[in-house]
């Protein structure tokens, strides 16, 4: 029987979002040369949440975009990845910009690799940083590391970590699904 365990509840979730925003402000100052890019679909939800919080903190003037990586997936030929693309909405060039790539979970690193390839089609950024809500630090397949992380989870290969959102699941929380 699969079991569900809440590893980050609603209250801690909000604190984590706030901490990530403060960390971003510490590193990026007034965000003058910064863009925030969410990776579809979980990364976009996280990026929207960061955006709301940054606005409350007075940071509003930066480029914001959504990036879909479906056409760049390295598992297209195995047809295991999502086939139907989501919307990409980047109406600016990332040339010489500092890009914060946002995703919900960092696991194998393959999504991030695809996102980096896709991002290059919008110019040559000065710097790309990675922000994730969950860093499943073991089982990485590629040499990729997050600059900003919400929580670090040590999980087994057959376990599944999901970031749930109030808009879609009724509650902001992170759950771990595994076998008994």
């Amino acid at each position: 029987m699969p079991v569900l365990r809440v590893i980050h509840d609603c209250d801690r979730f909000a604190l984590t979002i706030e901490r990530l925003c403060r960390h971003l402000i510490e590193e990026h100052g007034d965000f003058a040369n910064t863009c925030l890019v969410g990776v579809q679909t979980g990364g976009v939800q996280l990026a929207e949440r960061l955006r709301d919080k940054l606005t409350q903190m007075g940071v509003t003037d930066y480029d914001y975009g959504k990036l879909d990586i479906t056409f760049y997936r390295d598992d297209f030929r195995t047809a295991k990845g999502p086939l139907t693309p989501q919307q990409t909405e980047i109406d600016f060039l990332v040339e010489n910009k500092r890009v914060i790539l946002v995703d919900d979970v960092l696991y194998s690193g393959r999504t991030t690799l695809s996102a980096l390839t896709a991002l290059n089609h919008f110019g040559r950024p000065a710097q790309v940083e990675l922000l994730v809500m969950v860093d499943r630090r073991f089982r990485r397949s590629l040499p990729i590391k997050a600059n900003y992380r919400g929580i670090t989870v040590d999980s087994l290969h057959d376990e599944y970590v999901e970031v749930q959102w109030a808009e879609t699941h009724g509650k902001d929380q992170i759950i771990l699904t595994g076998s008994e």
Partner: peptide, 19 residues
């Protein structure tokens, strides 16, 4: 619906995907 996303691709500075 898929074409809608490709329309966005062909209006990028680099109009190519590796699929």
């Amino acid at each position: 619906d898929t074409a809608l996303q490709f329309k966005e691709v062909i209006n990028r500075p680099i109009k190519k995907v590796p699929s």
